[in-house]
Computed example of a mutant assay.
Amino acid sequence: MKIAALSDIHGNLAALNAVLDDAHRQGADVIVNLGDILSGALYPSQTADRLIPLGLPTISGNHERQLLTGELSRMGLSDRFANQCLRDDQLAWIRALPSTLRLAGDVLLVHGTPQDDLSYFLETVTASGCRVATHDEVKSRAGEADATLILCGHTHLQRSIKLDDGRLIVNPGSVGLQAYADDLPFPHRMEMGSPHARYASVTRTASGWDVEFRAVEYDWNAAATIAALNGRPDWETALRTGYC
């Protein structure tokens, strides 16, 4: 079985289309969507219309929860933009998404960690910035999750870590946004360093799971121009460069 793992599309329709095309060329048996699907500065409604008919195994991320539960005046810019663009049927689709999902028995889909959608799984933020999480940190966050493969998203960084108990945790990176800055729990930046759309191809083999991280070209300059027109210079920079 070959799984194309997508996460953090953030309404970037052009990046999504490029990744879907690449996943099909790579012979993916199933494509999964790990959340943070529509919130951003680009095309929330059009991205929902692209995804809904596909019926992909899909979970919600923190941005789905935030745009559904918060009042507009208290939402961040990305969630507010999406909320104002989406139709009732699209909001109903989001509302029905599970927070985690099991695939093929031993594959677990989560957005952050198995416990919540905001925690970083494979990275740790300290007062000095963001670093790769230690083996013990990752094992603690994995908890008792019974899966040979755990697919996660949220941090927009492509990374995999195999635990000593054999479980493999894979973050495919972000389809739609290659850099962001956050202030919690300490100020930090998450940057891929190039504007390519990202995902992971994960294949079951006789010896276990094999991971290939993919970086796909699309018209990121056009996407950046739309972000600028929508009043998001932070997105414009991230989309053009992969840096904050």
Rank of each mutant, 00 (worst) to 15 (best):
11 G>S: 08
16 L>D: 06
20 L>G: 07
20 L>M: 08
28 A>M: 08
30 V>G: 02
35 G>T: 11
41 A>Y: 06
42 L>Y: 10
43 Y>C: 10
44 P>L: 06
45 S>V: 00
45 S>W: 02
50 R>S: 11
51 L>S: 01
60 S>F: 12
71 E>K: 15
73 S>D: 15
73 S>N: 13
75 M>G: 11
78 S>E: 15
81 F>Q: 09
84 Q>L: 15
90 Q>N: 06
91 L>M: 07
98 P>D: 11
104 A>V: 01
112 G>H: 04
116 D>Y: 06
125 V>G: 09
126 T>H: 09
130 C>M: 14
132 V>Y: 11
137 E>I: 00
137 E>T: 06
138 V>A: 03
138 V>E: 03
141 R>P: 06
143 G>A: 00
153 G>E: 06
155 T>L: 02
157 L>G: 02
158 Q>K: 07
162 K>Y: 02
168 L>F: 05
169 I>V: 07
177 L>Y: 09
180 Y>V: 04
182 D>M: 08
186 F>W: 14
186 F>G: 01
188 H>W: 13
191 E>A: 13
193 G>E: 01
194 S>Q: 14
197 A>C: 03
198 R>I: 02
199 Y>N: 07
200 A>K: 09
205 T>M: 02
210 D>V: 05
213 F>L: 04
219 D>C: 00
220 W>N: 14
220 W>T: 05
222 A>Y: 05
229 L>K: 14
230 N>V: 01
